[in-house]
Write a protein that binds this DNA or RNA. Structure first.
Lengths: 206, 206, 206, 206
DNA sequence: TATGAATGAGAGTTCATTCAT
DNA sequence: AATGAATGAACTCTCATTCAT
């Protein structure tokens, strides 16, 4: 009988291989978009043979879905950790924006791919993206926007729609580069724009 | 020399053919994205043989660029006409949003394709899009936002960056559908969100 | 009833059109070879619409055959005239070479196309070429080589095969350019080579 | 690291596949010329799928160049071996002609394709052909013609130009078939023709 | 488990030819 | 007689996927 601990070692190796492939795929998807992305190139970039990639992912499509799940998870975890560390709703807003923009700044490549997918023509990809980002929408609407409204920090808006709009805005601004390769807006400008819109009139901003 | 009037008639027919092809292309590009768009399908949808498409556009790429130019022109003209008909900056804002959202609502397919392109990986397409939309950015920043700031209707923001952000937002919201096929937000919500952000504090909104 | 003389005028115009098309075709066939030759380009170069070319020649193939016939006729007439003007067989040889090389020099483009065709894979074209050049072979073997042998100027060779070989050599050398664009050999060298081979030993050459 | 010997075995298989494709290509190029040659037909003739051909050669053009290199190598090796086995310049001439004509007779298909290419309109193909045949020209002029002149066997001719002419003649005669499918001349006739031209007058030929 | 040569459906593009004007 | 827009068969090339080693 095969010893159990060996299996564990193998699992770890496989997890690592899987991750390497997904990372290479992210790069490729971000640079070329899903359709122009080339599985052979992904395999090469990951340091494996094409067959190996197909041992882990039965198709390019599944690889894309895995990448979407992966990045959504990462994004959600990243933002969740930072937001949850704050107790006060007002602080949570700031934390959310800081974390969201920081994520886009850190994972520009991936954010680009995600935004690309969000606006791409593939229904399944978009649906999967929504699904993966569900916790973030939840967090935003239930733990950030709704309490802020309740506290009177934000004016009355639809928390769910607003959550979607915020995602659209910060993924969009974070992946828009001018032909000269510069970002359109810096994040503080964007945060300013959004907070100006959401904050209720009673206070002065910043 | 060939008679001139005959040439004119022929030119008109050719213009019409060209337009039919571009319209079919718009549909195809919007539904499938550039890469998955199929030139044979475009030809068929336009009611011509494949060769005819290539008599007008030397490549799929050029056809795409022609579509981009075309839709940018349309969009610009559409919005420009409505905005210019208002004299008061405050009214112009409203007119701009009304026109912009109306455009996206009327030409949802095309707006989708444009937004898709705006966020796609192809540099040349993006550059061409920017170029085509230049007059709209100009209008927004010079004739709408800047005067509104001057009049004290808007708070101090960077007119150019804001113009870009507005485009991002209304093209984005106008082409986002939930998996169930419904728009995320209606345009009044979006206009509200934006105006809340831009209007200076002195007045009450809505 | 249509007047006869009008018909004659029309015929002349048509002859001229036909000739213009063939000349443009010669250029195209020489530069690009039959397969890459483009009928639209031929029409344009000739100054006519594509339809006009097809009014004169029912297919690209027939146009090629017409060109082959045309150039063969030209070549044959050209050489024949010069050779026939000499009475002495010895002089006829010189005349033949002079005329042959002069032809290749004058009509390099056409000679190239002809040589190209001679060595190309198309059986029908080659057969037509042979047919067109029949009078030249005849002349060469019957009126030049054979008499020269009879007079003892040439050694005993097969007149027909030698005629073919001579054609091969002077069309070949006349259309061979080094990558730098220069002719390999000048014609006197080639003539020297050939005459050295054919002349009987009794005399000194040149 | 992957074991080395396995790589070797695989390399051998790949070399064989490559060779099979080139051989099928030779046939196709010879029969139809480069332009009419069909890559699908080549793949089929080689016993592979179309994709396999493109795994080895990135384009039809590159396949053609590989074929040209291949046949030049073969031709050069073939003739070189036979000529080098003779020490006496006089014998080398005979050996060269024997080998050259034998090659053309053995590889008629390929010779046809090569001659076709030599006289075709494609500059790059011609240049590549020259490059590949360089050693043969070298051999002919330096080791065959020049020594023969030095020994007084040949009259004073330009060795380089003459080498070119000889190539032209024997590739030309070796690939010319009458419409009835027979060779124009047999090789002894051609050799005779050439030697009569080159040999110095002091001796009687045949 | 990893490999990578082989596969072949599918897509973009060309261009000789037609025919209504 | 001249025109040229329309046609579509044919061709080159790509690349996701398979499977024997």
């Amino acid at each position: 009988m095969a010893p159990r601990y060996k299996k564990t070692v193998r699992d770890e190796v496989m997890q690592e291989t899987r991750q390497l492939v997904i990372e290479a795929a992210a790069e490729e998807f971000a640079h070329n978009g899903y359709d122009k992305a080339n599985v052979n190139r992904i395999a090469e970039a990951a340091g494996f043979a094409i067959g190996t990639v197909y041992n882990y992912f039965p198709s390019k499509r599944v690889l894309m879905l895995a990448f979407v799940d992966d990045i959504a998870q990462l994004h959600v975890d990243y933002v969740l950790a930072q937001v949850k560390s704050e107790q006060d709703p007002g602080q949570r807003i700031e934390a959310f924006f800081k974390a969201g923009f920081a994520f886009v700044e850190t994972y520009t490549t991936q954010a680009k791919a995600i935004f690309n997918t969000l606006n791409g023509p593939d229904e399944e990809f978009r649906a999967r993206l929504f699904q993966g980002y569900q916790p973030l929408f939840q967090l935003l609407s239930d733990d950030v926007i709704a309490p802020s409204i309740a506290q009177g920090d934000f004016r009355q808006v639809d928390p769910v729609a607003t959550a979607g709009l915020l995602m659209l805005i910060y993924l969009g601004t974070g992946s828009q580069f001018s032909p000269e390769g510069e970002l359109w807006m810096d994040y503080t400008q964007v945060a300013d724009f959004v907070l100006h819109s959401l904050k209720s009139g009673k206070e002065n901003l910043r």
